[in-house]
Amino acid sequence: LKKGSQVEALFSYEATQPEDLEFQEGDIILVLSKVNEEWLEGECKGKVGIFPKVFVEDC
């Protein structure tokens, strides 16, 4: 996944840490960066945070 690409949430993700990005199933997320193999940083609904890659798929 490249910076600036968009992904769609397959499942809702509930934030458990302040840096987490919370979203609902079906939301479109703009990928800002790759944190590591399992986590991405993205923006959704004006909020920025990190989230697990397994919760999303390429649009």
Score class of each variant (00 low, 15 high):
residue 4 G to R: 05
residue 17 Q to T: 14
residue 30 L to V: 12
residue 36 N to M: 07
residue 22 E to S: 14
residue 17 Q to N: 11
residue 8 E to R: 15
residue 39 W to N: 10
residue 16 T to C: 07
residue 17 Q to W: 02
residue 10 L to R: 13
residue 46 G to T: 00
residue 15 A to T: 00
residue 29 I to R: 07
residue 33 S to D: 15
residue 54 V to Y: 12
residue 47 K to S: 10
residue 20 D to L: 12
residue 48 V to T: 12
residue 43 E to S: 12
residue 45 K to Q: 04
residue 51 F to T: 10
residue 7 V to L: 03
residue 52 P to R: 00
residue 33 S to C: 06
residue 6 Q to P: 00
residue 48 V to Q: 09
residue 3 K to A: 06
residue 57 E to W: 12
residue 35 V to H: 01
residue 20 D to P: 10
residue 42 G to N: 06
residue 41 E to R: 13
residue 47 K to T: 09
residue 40 L to H: 02
residue 42 G to E: 09
residue 20 D to N: 02
residue 39 W to C: 07
residue 47 K to E: 01
residue 52 P to K: 04
residue 11 F to I: 02
residue 58 D to F: 02
residue 39 W to L: 01
residue 12 S to M: 07
residue 47 K to P: 01
residue 14 E to A: 13
residue 55 F to I: 04
residue 22 E to W: 01
residue 42 G to A: 11
residue 36 N to A: 12
residue 27 D to Y: 04
residue 44 C to P: 04
residue 27 D to I: 10
residue 26 G to V: 07
residue 22 E to Y: 04
residue 56 V to Y: 04
residue 21 L to V: 10
residue 43 E to P: 01
residue 15 A to Y: 03
residue 57 E to T: 15
residue 49 G to I: 07
residue 46 G to S: 00
residue 9 A to Y: 00
residue 29 I to V: 01
residue 34 K to N: 09
residue 26 G to Y: 00
residue 4 G to D: 12
residue 4 G to N: 07
residue 19 E to F: 03
residue 37 E to V: 13
residue 6 Q to K: 14
residue 1 L to E: 13
residue 5 S to V: 12
residue 10 L to K: 04
residue 52 P to A: 08
residue 59 C to M: 15
residue 51 F to W: 02
residue 54 V to K: 15
residue 30 L to W: 05
residue 10 L to T: 05
residue 42 G to Q: 03
residue 48 V to P: 00
residue 4 G to K: 10
residue 23 F to L: 07
residue 45 K to T: 04
residue 53 K to P: 02
residue 59 C to W: 15
residue 33 S to A: 11
residue 15 A to H: 00
residue 10 L to S: 01
residue 46 G to D: 02
residue 2 K to Q: 15
residue 59 C to Q: 07
residue 44 C to H: 01
residue 34 K to S: 07
residue 32 L to V: 09
residue 34 K to R: 06
residue 14 E to C: 09
residue 59 C to L: 11
residue 35 V to A: 12
residue 34 K to P: 01
residue 23 F to N: 07
residue 18 P to Q: 01
residue 9 A to V: 00
residue 34 K to I: 15
residue 59 C to N: 09
residue 43 E to G: 11
residue 58 D to A: 14
residue 21 L to C: 04
residue 59 C to I: 13
residue 19 E to A: 10
residue 23 F to H: 11
residue 38 E to S: 02
residue 52 P to G: 10
residue 12 S to G: 07
residue 44 C to A: 09
residue 4 G to W: 01
residue 23 F to E: 12
residue 43 E to F: 08
residue 34 K to W: 07
residue 33 S to H: 04
residue 25 E to N: 12
residue 39 W to G: 07
residue 9 A to R: 03
residue 26 G to P: 02
residue 43 E to N: 02
residue 31 V to T: 06
residue 49 G to T: 00
residue 50 I to C: 07
residue 35 V to G: 04
residue 16 T to E: 07
residue 30 L to K: 15
residue 48 V to R: 15
residue 8 E to H: 14
residue 53 K to W: 01
residue 47 K to Q: 01
residue 34 K to Y: 04
residue 8 E to T: 13
residue 17 Q to L: 09
residue 21 L to A: 04
residue 58 D to Y: 04
residue 51 F to R: 02
residue 34 K to D: 12
residue 43 E to H: 08
residue 4 G to P: 10
residue 31 V to H: 07
residue 21 L to D: 08
residue 54 V to R: 15
residue 27 D to V: 00
residue 54 V to E: 11
residue 29 I to T: 05
residue 52 P to S: 04
residue 46 G to L: 10
residue 39 W to Q: 01
residue 16 T to S: 11
residue 50 I to H: 07
residue 56 V to F: 09
residue 22 E to N: 03
residue 9 A to S: 02
